[in-house]
Design a protein around this nucleic acid. Sequence first.
DNA 1: CGACTTTGACCAGCGC
DNA 2: GCGCTGGTCAAAGTCG
Length: 319
Amino acid sequence: MSDHEPKDLYYHDLFQYEAHEHLNGGMVSINDHQNLQGFDVNPSYMNFTECSKGSVDYNSLATAFGLSSSTSEALFSSVEGNQNAVDHLGGGGGGGGETPLTPNSSVSSSSAEADADKDCGKNKKDRQPKGSSEDGDSSKKVSKPAKKKGEKKQKEPRFAFMTKSEVDHLEDGYRWRKYGQKAVKNSPYPRSYYRCTTQKCGVKKRVERSYEDPSIVITTYEGQHNHQLPATLRGNAAAALFPPSMLNLSNLAAGGPSSTFPQELLFQMPQYMISSNVNQGSSRNPNHLLQQYQLPHAAADQYGLLQDFVPSMFLKQEP
DNA sequence: CGACTTTGACCAGCGC
DNA sequence: GCGCTGGTCAAAGTCG
C-alpha cells in the first residue's frame, strides 16, 4: 500500500502463490475437470480471500458446489469491501503482492462486518445528476456529491474471478452497459466498467485483462443483482457458454435443471444466504429465486461450512 | 429511434 | 498541498 510495486506483483502472486495461498487460507480453489466451452478455462482459482481468513475448508466449498479438487477452473476472489483486495485485482491494489493473503494480511478486513455502514446508497452514484440541478451551473461536468467528510465509499460485496477467454466481456446472462474505460497503470490493457442495465440494480462489474497473461480476463462484480436474469437472455447465454459439465455444476448448486452461470451462482449464493436473514417482508427482492439455488442435499453437509464463512462476506446489511 | 459504446473530463481517495 | 490513479459522468458517436 505504500507504493505501487507490491500492487504490480499481484498478478504474479495471484498465480504463483496458489499453493501458498492454499496453505495460508488465502485462496479457495474450486476445481473442475471440465473446461468451459469456448473459454478454454485454464487453471483458475477461487479466491475467497475474505471468507477464507484461514478458516474455510476450501475443499468443502468446492465440494459444496459439486466440484472436484484436482484442477482449478476459475478464480474467484472475494474482494468485498476491501479496497486493497479489490485493487490488487484491478492492477492497482496492494494486497496480494509480496504479502501473502494471510489472515493478517490487508485483505482480511471485512466490510460486511466492519464497514457495514448501512448506507446502502451509492455514494458516487448518489451524486446529484447535473441535469436535475436547478442552478444549472454546469461549468463542471460532474456536480459534487453532498458527501460528508468522513463518509466512505460504499462497499458492496465484490467477487472477482479470472477466466481464460479471448473476449473481454463475458456473457453472463445479464445485460450490461459500459459506462467507462480506463487505462490501468502498469497494464497495457484497459479496464472496462459495466453497469447492469436493469433498473434499480446497481450491480457493476469491471473487466480487465491480466497483463501477465493477456488471455486471462479478470472480472470483478460489485453488488448483487436484485432481479432475475433478463428473460430474453436467460438460459441462452448460459447454455451457450457452458457445457453440460458446467451446467451440472450449476444444477448441483441449484438442485434443479435450470442452468446458471457460475457468476450468477456467485450472486445467488449470497442471496441464498441472505434469504434467511433479509427476506422477510422484502417484497422487492424476488427471492423466489432463492429457492432455485438451494444447495443440493449432497452438499447439505457442507452447507454448514459455507455458513461459517459466507455470512460475513455475503450478507448485505438490510436497513 | 432507442440502446449501447466511446471517450474526454471531472472528482475522490491516497500516498508522498 | 500536490500529483497520481481509479472510478464515474455524460455528450457524441455508432449500431441494429
